[in-house]
Nucleic acid binder design. Structure first.
Lengths: 222, 222
DNA sequence: TAGATTGTTAATCGATTAACAATC
DNA sequence: TAGATTGTTAATCGATTAACAATC
């Protein structure tokens, strides 16, 4: 019944799957039907064995000499990620980033994520519409989430409001929070938080550049 | 001369630093002067020894019983991340996300990142202004980057244009690319790429939620 | 002085990679 | 059949955690 009994995947492995998926979709557009682990691994930058294990965790079964069926693989990964059936999500914070998130049609089409309501505390924003969604006061978030059985919340408010927004989401029964604020959130054990703070990602990049430039400065001249 | 000779830090450690920094700034706002590793580790969700090593990599020196001086720590981390002096960056792609990035004042103030030019291929956008920056054609990116000695590039174009934008950046001498497209980029060895594709982050979240919901379904009756 | 916390070395743990038999 | 690639077990590697002496 369960195709991938016993197979596990690490958090890092989980993050390879969307990249693999993106590559598979590209291959499919070029008319390819099957793929082996080597080109996948090359494209996403990992070891072929690694890719094979990630695919196995999704329940994929390949054939020696031939590899994997691309269409099947895409379906398996999408199912594993929960992207093949639509999930409704609430958004807290309708600033720059929040508005941009509301504007993405991709989330609906690719990841099956439908941002159905947006919330903000700014009276100037409440009642206005952004990309067709009316902005509601955050005080209404909990009740609405519970009534609509929404399980995914997106936090795009400033640091000082982030924990409050998270509390409202948890109170409303939301179980997964995509956190774009720099604040580390405190949530109950059964709630997942993905900290997508852009400054974390930028910091990793600028630190590497910074270290490399300093090293080069020392090597060449001076 | 070099305070942290011999100390190294992993990529994961690098990503803890911005979170630690954010926590330290919060503490500073509350008027705290010193901090030990335990509350830092608790806040960002790691082991205290881990936090201590991360701080050591930045050149921090603490005092037994007292901990670390917060102001000093903030300065050290900012220096390590390269956030204490302004860096100029180019942006490719002025769509939803690109526009939002242009609108953040935070990048300038907090991370010292100044997006000085934005580029796009859409004739309807070229020549218009977004948050005070004129949109230029991508064909001009390379030459301008070289002339202005810009080292950081941000890619917020669709997947199919991402590699082209990266090539233009590399040709212009850009050494660090913050890639928001789903495409895995091919760049020379001396160029850093930070793949900040939102779908990777979302996938990790939805997969966990998905697995947990399935597990609960099995456990509690059905 | 006593005790908490740093700094660092050693032990553990988990993820990545290598090896290899199974198989199409 | 021969050979490439899967699937899986074993070895390696690196990061995390534990232990403990140094010190303020």
């Amino acid at each position: 019944m369960n195709a991938n009994k016993g197979k596990t995947i690490s958090d890092k492995g989980l993050r390879r799957l969307p990249k693999i998926l993106s590559y598979l979709q590209e291959l499919q557009q070029y008319g390819e039907n099957t793929v082996t682990c080597t080109p996948i691994a090359e494209n996403i930058g990992c070891d072929p064995t690694q890719a094979r294990k990630d695919l196995a965790a999704c329940g994929a079964v390949g054939r020696p000499r031939t590899g994997y069926d691309i269409t099947e693989l895409i379906a398996l990964i999408e199912t594993f990620l929960g992207w093949n059936n639509m999930s409704e999500a609430f958004l807290a914070g309708a600033g720059n980033l929040g508005s941009a998130l509301l504007g993405f049609r991709n989330f609906r089409e690719q990841q099956g994520l439908d941002i159905v309501c947006a919330f903000d505390n700014d009276p100037a924003k409440i009642g206005t519409e952004i990309y067709g969604r009316e902005i509601l006061p955050i005080s209404k978030l909990s009740n609405l989430a519970r009534r609509m059985h929404v399980l995914i919340g997106i936090i795009a408010v400033p640091a000082e409001s982030a924990q409050g927004a998270a509390d409202a989401m948890v109170a409303g029964g939301i179980r997964a929070i995509w956190n774009f604020s720099p604040k580390t959130l405190e949530v109950p054990e059964n709630t997942f938080v993905e900290h997508a703070d852009l400054s974390v990602s930028l910091g990793a990049l600028t630190a590497k550049l910074n270290l490399a430039l300093k090293k080069e400065e020392v090597e060449h001249g001076r």
